[in-house]
Design a protein around this nucleic acid. Sequence first.
DNA 1: CCGATAAAGTTAAGGAGCCTTACTAGGGCC
DNA 2: GGCCCTAGTAAGGCTCCTTAACTTTATCGG
Lengths: 404, 404
Amino acid sequence: MRGPMHENGGMPASDAVEQPEQPWSRRRLRSTNERLLLDRLRGLGTASRAQLARETGLSKPTVSSALASLAAAGLVHEVGTHAPERGRTAVLYAPDPAAGYALGVDIGRGWLRVALAGLDGRLVARSDVRNRARASAALTDLIVTTARQVMANSGVDPAEVAHGVIGTPGVYDEERRRVRYAMHLPGWGRAGLVDRIRAELGVPLEVHNDANLAALGEYAFGVGAGSRLFAYIMIGTGLGMGIVSEGRLFTGARGLAGEIGFLPWHGRRKPERLEDAVSGVAVVEAAREFGMRGQLTAKAVFDAARQGHPDAVRAVELEGERIAHTVAAAAAVLDPELVVLGGGVGHSVDLLLRPVREHVRALTPLRPRIAPSRLGEDAVLLGAVAVALDTARDLVFERRTAGI
Amino acid sequence: MRGPMHENGGMPASDAVEQPEQPWSRRRLRSTNERLLLDRLRGLGTASRAQLARETGLSKPTVSSALASLAAAGLVHEVGTHAPERGRTAVLYAPDPAAGYALGVDIGRGWLRVALAGLDGRLVARSDVRNRARASAALTDLIVTTARQVMANSGVDPAEVAHGVIGTPGVYDEERRRVRYAMHLPGWGRAGLVDRIRAELGVPLEVHNDANLAALGEYAFGVGAGSRLFAYIMIGTGLGMGIVSEGRLFTGARGLAGEIGFLPWHGRRKPERLEDAVSGVAVVEAAREFGMRGQLTAKAVFDAARQGHPDAVRAVELEGERIAHTVAAAAAVLDPELVVLGGGVGHSVDLLLRPVREHVRALTPLRPRIAPSRLGEDAVLLGAVAVALDTARDLVFERRTAGI
DNA sequence: CCGATAAAGTTAAGGAGCCTTACTAGGGCC
DNA sequence: GGCCCTAGTAAGGCTCCTTAACTTTATCGG
């Protein structure tokens, strides 16, 4: 099973919590307006001061002075000029992507992926290495060396990395300082590992559940972009769902939202856990039951189905029905406008899409759009980067404007 | 079935939408601070200016001047004095509950309930009348006369009622200006009825789904008070769920979240809709199937079970199992910390609680607290009042501070 | 009864930050 | 070159917050 995201995972000191109960002094006002300008500039990519004044509703002098502060803080740069139809040429500004960096890490069973992004969200370096670690020390070492290498490759000092996010199966237990329910990663459940990585890298780190990060990845960069509410169903070794509502993770009261492995499910013989029914192992089991022989893997079954092998086709059909059950339950409770299918079965979503859609139609009148993941294997990594970016932008803004 | 809440139901002009993208000018700053003070005052009930200064972090002069503005606007009053241990006696201020009023209406199949509350949330008048209307005209007339009577009883002019909320089964379709899916209320689905009521009463009105309002009612006044995330399951003529997350309704992408009537459910003979399996009718059916005879109602079955009638007990047990299925599904998807059972079966929750809890325990390791509704039959009405209050407070604040 | 102390609240001075108005700067078109 | 148009700057004013000192009013202890 994919565990939930732990809110404010392993995040250290600088919390950047909103405090809406605080009074609004003039300093806060200025900082709010500077932030507004910076955000607008990020959205536009590049803009002149006059344009920003029009867009934000602030007066030109205010924009000029606020932008001067931002430039002095190193958050913004002149990047060129633009000649309008007629009139004076404008000086263009853009956020400085090198004002800080965000680190994303995806710890998967087969692969370890690390990426570094500038504040504009663009990756500046990335490394994917096979995860063959079978013990906690080996895994942490691998993470540390890979992350260091990524930073070195891009010439970024660790001190410039404002924030990092690690994606992993399971849940990070803040109190016990360890990851729980990550049964597929040997040794990864030991206490203090994240603290050790944080200490060795010198980068603030948060830990989140991989299904949740994948959902956020699809929201930030993929097929869920801009969706009001969507669910990402991750089918692979386990089964998990990430929910993104209004651009933010919906984690539930204790961070266990999306634990659809626990959905009640009536198997054909006896009630069983849904997680055991969906997921890679179940496909193999079903195929075997329908008569397939030999050394089977989920991938092999899907490949056979693609070739038209009848037993494999039936197994895939059954898998589609089971996923449809999940989708229908999520639809009835959440009413998402979109359900994204991804995870280990990513390569085989083409085969599953039709049966899932058909069975959903039969199960419920609620019909969210069902789409395959766009980011595929990169969803978790890019989600980690997106979350790290969010925090990094806040931190860099606060750090750089505080000293003025 | 209970339909969903339609966001911004029948609400007219004054929308009070947040516009976080707007710049922060000085006027906004002042108004924000006044609002902060008013909210704090509502929380404290009563406070001196020095106390407010300490609590909010604002300086004493600022508090004095802002409070003077609020008093001039009629939003706040001196209400007495307080003598501290030693030192000058403080002048106490409190929000004026009569600065505006909020109206709540619950249109149920058996009863029509109307309540009027001051801005402090206290009911100033209330009326419950039997709903025997069997046509749209009769129903709207009944609503209008009852509401007028409630206002008259408390001596409140309709112009002082800043906002009203109507709770009803079904969904209000904003475009077609009619309620949909309210099959149990004859005539109530006709177009323009809400507009007519609004026009005749002279009060801005919103329409929301009853299950959602009941959830909010339990959050504001009942057993869900202060809960981070909880679900209210309304079991009666139909089946519905309201979800309150961080104090706000979770409505889903199209307002259909909580439509648990559509949960896939394997009946004992054939797949059927869950709504048909849970709900009053189903209890009766089950009892009959188990051998009970005679003119049965849900209430009769529950009463018989309370007496120990074995067939009735079995029927109740089955009903509990079905509800547990719903709870388990909600728990897996949402992870609420609390599930409240209410609705028409309110009187019989005592009988259901044990079987529901037991079956949930058997179905899933996720175990939200399960509690009976505290507000009972009043949940929808009080939820309507709570929602109306929220909007009314905003409207009154804006209206009264605008003119200065 | 009188001063010391303490808390509530007011007054006055100062300053931060925004806006408006009016200006300068620079580019193309007639 | 004059005109028009857009970008950007300068000066002045306004709002509203804060700090600091002061007044008012209460209790306490002698």
